[in-house]
Design a protein around this nucleic acid. Sequence first.
DNA 1: CCATTGACTCGGA
DNA 2: GTCCGAGCCAATG
Length: 101
Amino acid sequence: MQPFTKEVIRIIQNIPSGKVMTYGQVARLAGNPRGARQVARILHSLSKKYQLPWHRVINARGEIVISDHELFTEQKRNLELEGVEVSPEGKVNLHIYQVQN
DNA sequence: CCATTGACTCGGA
DNA sequence: GTCCGAGCCAATG
């Protein structure tokens, strides 16, 4: 387990309810500007072990981009439960909901 | 050890 | 505004 990965986990756990961050944003804060895909992969494989709020992380365009339909629906539902508006296509308004640093 | 796998991003067309 | 190609790199098997 690399330091970068631990940082990513810590950052994800600190995202407040009702807010979202992008993969790239998390990667930059964790010290690896090019590590967006690693963030994605970390969530994909480690979200259960570390009980991460993975649904609060979306891509740079403010969209839920997930291949698995079940997970897509789950993420959309979880965000809406926290008061985040999500369009049927999975778009979120980053200007309103993104955590700024 | 080497190859594959991605919930991505950026810049250019 | 959209689409595409190249780059990215830790985890996993």
